[in-house]
Amino acid sequence: MLLAVVRLGAEAFGPDIGEELERSAGRGVTRGALYSTLNRLEGKNFLAWTPEEPGEGRGGHIRRHFAVTADGLAALRERREALLTLWDGIESVLDGDSPG
């Protein structure tokens, strides 16, 4: 979710995040799950949003633009490091080089 927000950057509005998630996951994402997750991430201080003008076709309702906070970035970095650590040492195997 955080990656989706980072990837969308200036376009990180609710529906766009939803579509981006559906695209990368290859399946539908209910909006209940979407907004619940956004709310949780916001509660953890990983996300923050700013209100923006509604634009057309929204019945005059405002739009929220989401951005990842410094804490969110730190969390992403941590997650990435954890993943990379898991890959440590087996990359050579996957790449087909014989060890040693």
Partner: peptide
């Protein structure tokens, strides 16, 4: 309000 707007838009 924004969620409602999002849903209407989609």
């Amino acid at each position: 309000e924004s969620i409602r707007g999002d849903l209407v838009q989609e």
